[in-house]
Write a protein that binds this DNA or RNA. Structure first.
Length: 638
RNA sequence: GCCCACAUAGCUCAGUCGGUAGAGCGCAUCCUUGGUAAGGAUGAGGUCACCAGUUCAAAUCUGGUUGUGGGCUCCA
């Protein structure tokens, strides 16, 4: 037998016989390590623990402590689940795909007869446990593409056949455990006995290959961990996240509601929610004016012909609401750009006056598919902090950077972490290569200048131009697009926007569509979850509540309340005939930052005794001292 | 829009086998005047989401509609 040299991460070299596996190598170091190992990197490539090593090279073992371990375990758990399902339901169910995902894994099944229900979960879990306890070896096998097609066709697994038919490779790899076989790249745990902690979580429909024209598959979501403790931590985290859910908090804090009578996806803002909105809108106007934007306001409906001219009628009609009066058709605006262009067009423009930056808190209506509505995060009527920057091509760069800085400033104030994505030219697109290059480079260089990481979504741009998307996460870590910057060459063309250049000729400007918060509704949804309902003082709809200890201080409490309200503090008065503890509790539960307690002592000294919502009592102070404290704190966005 | 599930008092939820409904909180009234997270008593409040159907009888079974939740597709 030939000997090969295997270099380990610590630099040491093991000599083993050719054909030895990573498991064998692990054994030479220690039995414990071998037991702990899940897979390995051989020359940088992920391989199974029982893959024969044919030549000298590097080897790095993936143990339970490695970051990759969980993903492999979950992927193997997906196979185990598929095996269990096939064992239980046989030919009635076809397997398709089952990857590991963040927080777990899923497997998609096709069946005409078997409808999975949550009651099946314990049955499937029990079968999985049984199969795992059997501790079957998980074996990799490589066969030719043709043989694989024949094999899966013989088994009646049409979806697997389709997958293999679309593969380029000469050979494909299969994984077998017991009598279950699945097409898979691997790697997997060496034995099913290594899968110990798993839990089926939910059931969902999913289109085959993510295309709504294809068959609807049944997806079972599940999760798996290396030990029970990690599973428990994960379940606790989900529990905590549910407490932050903006839909739950929105009801508890009386911020907003939806009504079946009004219609799905249409928000009813209650006084406290409307106050929060209004605070954010005031903030927005101020910040935009500071940055050279001008406020504009367009109409809520515009003639249908205009939507035809813009291309929305052809490309976006499904999402629009239309109305007709006096035989004239109107479209309710799903976007704000049209009015802004009409304002631009209302008079001749010179290169000297560019860029123009039109800002509007524009309320739009979009007919979103019923299944996608989600609290405030996906609605049908919403207000965008929308602006259109119409500029010369040579100004794109500076304008994009300006918007990026704006976005970063605002994210800093709210304390958000975010993910950025650059989406480039899709296959179906319009405009010249030069335009696309220039716009894409402008966006890219703004991203590079920010020094922050971003993802590249090749070919994911709008048909009219590339874009940067900024995504924020909700309590459950789902990403929601908020800010976006899009370059557009099409609409200026379609609307024949022009400016007179230095040469006295007409030129075509470029338009940037951009939002900073995105939609006020969505932003507030994310904001509620971000702060778990405990808004900083400057955002709190109610900043303070005046509480009297007994009826005898009611008149003084009333006087303090009025003094605060006049000073612009958002304050409430609670002089109900209740014990102080009760009132404190209510204020605490509604997450009001300051509780101002007034008893005989305070009335005597003409002071108030503030209690912060973290439970800390402050020394008594005069009302005017409290007012200036609140003003200082709020103006610093605290 | 598609798949699965769900819809009972203002809120959170119970309601067994088909025999027309309960709790806690909240609300109202009264008692209590109490110093930092729930004082006590009494009372009001429900076309069981909506529309059909099965049945002597439907909150309960069946179908449809609307809405909601988790996904898929799509998107701020």
């Amino acid at each position: 037998m030939d000997l090969i040299k295997i270099e380990l991460p610590d630099g040491s070299i093991k000599e083993v016989e050719s054909g030895a596996t990573p498991y064998d190598v692990a054994l030479t170091i220690g039995e414990g390590l071998a037991r702990q190992s899940i897979a390995a990197y051989s020359d940088g490539e992920l391989v199974d623990l029982n893959t024969p090593l044919k030549s000298s090279g590097t080897l790095s073992l993936i143990t339970q402590n490695s970051p990759e371990a969980l993903e492999i375990v979950r992927h193997s758990s997906a196979h185990l689940m598929a095996q269990a399902v096939k064992d239980l339901y046989g030919d009635a169910v076809q397997v398709t795909i089952g990857p590991a995902i963040k927080d777990g894994f899923y497997y998609d099944f096709y069946s005409e007869t078997k409808k999975f229900v949550p009651e099946d979960f314990p049955v499937i879990e029990a079968k999985m446990t049984e199969l795992a306890k059997a501790d079957q070896a998980v074996l990799r096998e490589e066969i030719s593409r043709g043989d694989a097609i024949e094999l899966f066709r013989g088994m009646g697994e049409d979806y697997k056949v389709e997958l293999i038919e679309d593969l380029d490779a000469e050979t494909v790899s299969l994984y077998r455990q017991g009598d279950f076989v699945d097409l898979c790249r691997g790697p997997h745990v060496p034995r099913t006995g290594m899968l110990k902690v798993f839990k089926l979580t939910s059931l969902a429909g999913a289109y085959w290959r993510g295309d709504e024209k294809n068959a609807m598959l049944q997806r079972i979501y599940a999760t798996a961990f290396l030990n029970k403790k990690d599973l428990k931590v994960h379940l606790n985290r989900l529990e905590e996240a549910r407490k932050r859910d903006h839909r739950k908090l929105g009801k508890e804090l009386d911020l907003f509601s939806f009504s079946e009578e009004a219609g799905g996806g249409l928000v009813l803002w209650h006084p406290k929610g409307a106050m929060l909105r209004s605070i954010i809108e005031d903030f927005e106007r101020k910040e935009h004016l500071k940055r050279g934007y001008e406020l504009v306001v367009g109409p809520q409906i515009l003639k249908t012909d205009l939507w035809k001219m813009s291309g929305h009628y052809d490309n976006y009609r499904e999402n629009m609401y239309f109305t007709e009066v006096d035989e004239q058709g109107y479209g309710i605006k799903p976007m704000n750009c049209l009015a802004h262009m009409l304002i631009y067009k209302s008079k001749p423009r010179s290169y000297r006056n560019l860029p123009v930056r039109y800002f509007e808190l524009g309320t739009v209506y979009r007919h979103e598919k019923s299944g996608v509505l989600h609290g405030l995060l996906r609605v049908r009527g919403f207000t965008q902090d929308d602006a259109h920057i119409i500029c010369r091509p040579d100004q794109i760069d500076a304008e994009v950077k300006g918007v990026m800085n704006f976005v970063q400033d605002v994210a800093g104030i709210f304390g958000f972490e975010y993910v950025m994505e650059l989406s480039t030219r899709p296959e179906k697109s319009i405009g010249s290569d030069a335009d696309w290059d220039q716009a894409t480079n402008a966006l890219r260089s703004a991203l590079e200048d920010s020094g922050l990481p971003y993802e590249l979504n090749e070919g994911d741009g709008a048909f009219y131009g590339p874009k940067i998307d900024v995504k924020l996460k909700d309590a459950l870590d789902r990403e929601w697009q908020c800010a976006t910057i899009q370059c557009d060459f099409t609409l200026p063309e379609r609307f024949d926007l022009t400016y007179v250049g230095t040469d006295g000729e007409k030129h075509r400007p470029v338009m940037l569509h951009r939002v900073v918060l995105g939609s006020i509704e969505r932003f507030i949804g994310v904001l509620i979850e971000h702060y778990a309902g405990s808004f900083p003082l400057w955002l709190s709809p109610v900043q303070a509540v005046v509480l009297n200890v007994t009826d005898s201080q009611a008149a003084y409490a009333q006087q303090v309340f009025e003094q605060l309200r006049e000073a612009g503090v958002r304050v409430e008065l609670d002089i109900r005939n209740e014990k102080l503890g009760f009132k404190i509790r209510e204020a605490q539960v509604s997450k009001i930052p300051y509780m101002l307690v007034i008893g005989d002592r305070e009335m005597e000294n003409q002071t108030i005794a503030p209690r912060y919502r973290n439970g800390k009592n402050m020394d008594a102070m005069t009302v005017s001292d409290f007012i200036s404290m609140v003003q200082t704190e709020a103006s610093a966005y605290k």
